[in-house]
């Protein structure tokens, strides 16, 4: 009959109206600045530096200032200065660290190449987008203090990827410890045999390729 469709339509809108007051499925709007939304895990832009310990960010940077990212960066927005001294890295080996590590985010194009070439899982993609400043020069040039973010933060934004990285690093640490133990045992045995220590060639490091580095730098 004429009009039945109208009544059905009116019922639909009435249901939506009433539902918007009690049913979250009928009130899907998020009031953005007050209620930040969780970004999807795959969302990524602008790199940051991973630190092991949030209480001492500058002392526990994973970065060893190898400068690969600096060289690979297509728009050349990374600037690194090596340190003079060395500090133990994630596997306990003594390594250099970056005295200066700057990223000019006004130049950075979020291409993720720095992340793909990093052999130390030290630089990862962030999830920041509200980066507007009133100063387009210094405000957008991020220092290493601003870039350093903890591994826990990395876990909070990219959980799957971070778990993968942690597992790999743990395996490497274990392998390094076993190797050290084996080397110590061999040394002890050699000392016991009173033989001159043979110049044992160090086996090459397990290639530390990041999972996204297909087609990147060939393993050493």
């Amino acid at each position: 009959m004429l009009g039945s469709g109208l009544l059905q339509g009116l019922a639909v809108t009435a249901k939506n109206f009433v539902g918007s007051f009690h049913d979250p499925a009928r009130y899907t709007t998020v009031e953005y600045p007050e209620q930040p939304t969780k970004l999807p895990e795959a969302y990524r832009n602008f790199p940051f530096l991973v630190t092991e310990n949030a209480t001492d960010p500058m002392g526990t940077l994973r970065c060893v200032a190898c400068q690969i990212c600096e060289k690979e960066c297509p728009p050349q927005c990374i600037y690194i200065e090596k340190s003079a001294d060395k500090k133990p890295d994630a596997t306990g080996k003594l390594q250099l660290y970056p005295k200066v590590f700057d990223i000019d985010t006004s130049v950075c194009m979020s291409c993720q190449i720095c992340v793909e070439v990093c052999p130390f899982d030290a630089i990862k993609m962030d999830q920041v987008f509200a980066i507007a400043t009133t100063d387009r020069f210094d405000g957008l040039l991020l220092k290493r203090e601003q870039l350093a973010k903890s591994n826990d933060y990395y876990h909070s934004i990219h959980p799957t990827e971070a778990a993968e990285v942690d597992a790999r690093l743990a395996a490497e640490r274990k392998a390094a410890a076993e190797k050290a133990a084996a080397a110590a045992a061999a040394k002890a045995a050699a000392a016991a045999a009173q033989k001159p220590a043979s110049p044992a060639v160090m086996p090459p490091d397990e290639p530390r390729r990041s999972s996204q580095s297909e087609g990147g730098r060939p393993p050493a």
């Binding site: 809108t13 939506n16 109206f17 918007s20």
Partner: peptide, 10 residues
């Protein structure tokens, strides 16, 4: 407000 509520927004 009413139109918005019908369209699931505030």
């Amino acid at each position: 407000k009413l139109l918005a509520r019908v369209q699931n927004r505030p």
